[in-house]
Amino acid sequence: MPAPTPPSDIADRIAALLDRHPVWDGHNDLAWEARGQVGYDWSALDIGAGTAGRTHTDIARLRAGGVGAQFWSVYVPSDLPGSAAVTATLEQIDAVRRMVETWPDAFALALAADDVEKAWASGRIASLMGAEGGQSVDSSLGTLRMLYDLGVRYMTLTHNHNTPWADSATDEPSRHGGLSEFGVEVVREMNRLGMLVDLSHVSAATMDAALDVTEAPVMFSHSSARAVCNVPRNVPDDVLARLGDNGGLCMVTFVPAFVNPDIGAWRAEAADAARERGIDPASYTAFSAFAEEWEAAHPIPPTSLDDVVAHIEHVRDVAGIDHVGLGGDYDGASGFAPGLEDVSGYPNLLAALVGRGWADADLAKLTSGNMLRVLRDAEGVAERLATERGPGTARFDRG
């Protein structure tokens, strides 16, 4: 069943709000989709002309969704070895930068909070980058610093697999039980640089360990609430409760398996079946192909926009209104709820929240106000730390 069309008065109210406070989304995998479909040839994946049916994202639909800032994920698989992961990440960064250069009337590269506001003033979509997984730096603080210099403004500490210094939510717990000593130094160096520490994908132990170390607000770029949908990728309430003191942000994702308990159970069953077949469910490429086959014989349960609303309101209730945002994960998942099928759907979500009594001031925090504050706060910490310590010198012991 399609999502209902908002009444004209609510639609007008949301349009006016988005004009002042556009959506700042935490995670979009268009660059990886471009790699798979066209080898990063933006002329063959013309998001200016429109790519409906091929991707969840193009310029017209970003405009329709009221998106004014996007963290473009520069994702690479977490089972890529060492330097291969670094090379693939550099290719992703290049792809995002070339996308911005190809459509300069639509996009503006943003390296700081001030750049985001300048992009809005010019009517363009602020484009930031986030590296999805510590595999992208191959256990090197020097590589981390170079990614920052190239424009990466957050790094997710892990993806689906553990790194040698941090535990993932979807891998076996390692001997360091969260963060190793080197992992602590990674967080400290990210604070010093002003690179946001992203705790999506990491284990609960890693979440707590990072919160114990960090001097800057953390973020969850695309995670939801474990109390509403009990899957490892979601955030437990005790961690959500810590965001108030930290100043951080949980950007609620729309991924069906992370918002709907029935689909979460379906995915867990598929993961068990994959293991029986000798397929690692943490391997994004291999498991995605298996899941398509599994779905043909085991239809996926339905999801709805209300599932996402439940997570947003739970995060608000536990962490506080200053600590909730949006992280759709478009072009990184499939089967999104009716009304949220692609990046044009954010107004439908806001309309549902209006129907539940949300005030414009709170909607403005959800769409972008909270993320703007978090980035500014991280920049402030980096400015202070620049006077207190130099670049980290820790080196990972490769044995």
Rank of each mutant, 00 (worst) to 15 (best):
M1G: 06
A3M: 05
I10P: 00
A11E: 06
A11S: 14
A15K: 15
R20N: 14
W24Y: 14
H27Q: 13
D29M: 07
D29H: 05
W32P: 00
L45C: 09
I47M: 08
A52L: 13
A52Y: 08
T55Q: 14
I59P: 01
G66T: 01
Q70E: 14
F71I: 03
P77L: 04
E91S: 10
Q92Y: 08
I93Q: 01
A95H: 00
M99R: 01
V100H: 06
T102D: 09
D105Q: 12
F107E: 02
L111Y: 12
A113D: 11
D115A: 03
S122N: 14
L128I: 03
E132H: 11
Q135P: 01
Q135V: 15
R145I: 10
Y148C: 04
R153V: 04
N160L: 11
N162W: 01
A166V: 07
D167V: 00
D171I: 02
S174V: 04
R188T: 06
R192Q: 08
M195A: 01
V197W: 06
D198L: 09
L199R: 04
V202E: 10
S203N: 10
A210D: 01
L211Y: 08
D212P: 00
V213T: 09
E215W: 07
S221F: 00
V228Y: 06
V228R: 15
C229Y: 14
N230Q: 13
P232Q: 10
V239L: 08
L240K: 00
L243V: 00
G244A: 15
D245C: 05
D245N: 12
G247M: 07
L249P: 01
A257M: 11
A257Q: 11
I263A: 09
A268V: 09
E269N: 08
A270C: 07
A273S: 12
A274T: 02
D280T: 00
P281F: 05
A282C: 06
S283Y: 08
T285C: 02
S288Y: 14
I300Q: 15
P301N: 14
S304L: 05
L305C: 02
V309W: 07
A310W: 03
H314W: 09
R316T: 12
G325W: 01
L326T: 07
G328T: 15
G328A: 13
G332Q: 05
G345L: 07
L349W: 12
L350Q: 03
A351I: 08
L353R: 01
R356G: 10
G357M: 07
A359D: 11
L363F: 08
L363V: 05
T367I: 04
T367C: 15
S368T: 02
D377P: 00
A378E: 02
L385S: 00
G392V: 09
G392K: 04
D397Y: 04
D397M: 03
R398G: 12
R398K: 12
